[in-house]
Structure formats: C-alpha cells, structure tokens
Simulated scan of single mutants.
Amino acid sequence: MQKEKLEKFKRRVSLGDLLTDRWENAREYGFGEGTSCYDNVLILGDVKVGAHTWIGPNTILDGSGGLMIGDHCSLSAGVQIYSHDTVRRSVTLGQAPIAYAPTRIGHGVYIGPNAIIAKGVTIGDGAVIGAMSFVNSDIPAGKKAWGTPACIAGDVVVADGVEQ
C-alpha cells in the first residue's frame, strides 16, 4: 500500500493516510465536494468547510464556537484556527467562563504554514495570510497580511493567474 501511495503522491505518507483517503475523510465530516483533509487533522465542534478546500497535515480546526471555511481555500500544514479561548478563565482561576466567538474564513483564502487564527476573526475572500502569522483581528477581502500580530501588507494582485 505504501508503494501505491508513493507512486500516486510522490512521497511517503503517515500510517493514517495509508489506511484512509483524504477526500473520504472530508466527506465523512460533511465538508464540501472535492475538499481533502489529512487523517491527522484535529477537528473539534461545529466546523463547516466548502468545496475544493485543501486542509494540510497537522492542522487544528476548532469549531467549538463555530467555524466556517469557504470554497477553494488552502490551509497549509500546521495551521491552527480557533473559535474559543480560555484566557479569562485561566487568569481568574476558573471564575470567568470560556470565551467563544465564531470564526470565518472566506472563499479563495490562502493561509501559510503554522499560522494561527484567533477566535472571532473573519478573513475576507481572496486574502493571503503569511506563514507563522498570528491573526487576532479581521483581515479584509483581497488583502495580504503577515506577522505577529498580523498586519496588512498590501493587496493581493493576481496577474495572468499568478499572485504578485
């Protein structure tokens, strides 16, 4: 089986991905047509994902407060998207409740490797988030942002099908 996967994907894959199919995983979660989801993705709560979205390995999708991800997105390896946090609960020694807020990722969004999206953030259609960024505020459609915390670095410009 490893040999078949090596020929098909040009790389070795984890045991979980040997035994399962990324597209079947996505279908079992009720994600959109053509979406793929590696076996080692952690999915919690209410997560909705559109069509033709790629969810990379070692990703965390926390839908405990509601998470919506659009069509034709790419979530690179190690991306973490949250819809809750326990900051106030922790610093108040359990007196404050866990905080929940829906998080939304628009259509055609690219999120670079190891980026973290905090609870309650909305990322607009066609936005690009740089690798290792921490996004704790909304990013408008068509903007590129990176850093910790992420700051808008300009517009996403597509010419002849190539981002610039």
Rank of each mutant, 00 (worst) to 15 (best):
T86E: 12
G106D: 10
V158M: 14
G120V: 03
I105P: 06
N58R: 11
W54Q: 09
F31W: 12
W23I: 10
A99Q: 15
Y82D: 05
L93C: 12
T53H: 07
C37A: 10
P102M: 07
E28F: 00
L42V: 14
A101E: 11
A159Q: 13
G94N: 01
V41C: 03
R27P: 06
R89G: 09
D62C: 03
E28H: 08
G120K: 06
E33S: 09
D160M: 03
G126T: 12
I139T: 09
P149L: 06
A118H: 10
Q164S: 14
V41Y: 00
G147K: 07
Y82N: 06
G32S: 04
W146D: 09
E4T: 03
L19Q: 13
I105R: 00
C73A: 06
V91H: 04
H72M: 06
G70H: 05
S83V: 03
D62V: 04
L61C: 00
H52N: 12
Q164E: 14
A99W: 11
N25W: 04
A99N: 14
S83M: 08
I98R: 10
A153T: 03
T53L: 10
S74A: 14
V87A: 05
C37N: 03
K3L: 11
C151S: 15
G126S: 09
P97Y: 06
D39S: 15
L67P: 05
Y110T: 11
G16D: 03
G63N: 01
G30N: 08
L93W: 10
D125H: 01
R11K: 15
A153Q: 13
M1V: 08
A115F: 06
W23Y: 15
T20Y: 11
Q80I: 10
K143R: 05
G126P: 04
P149Y: 11
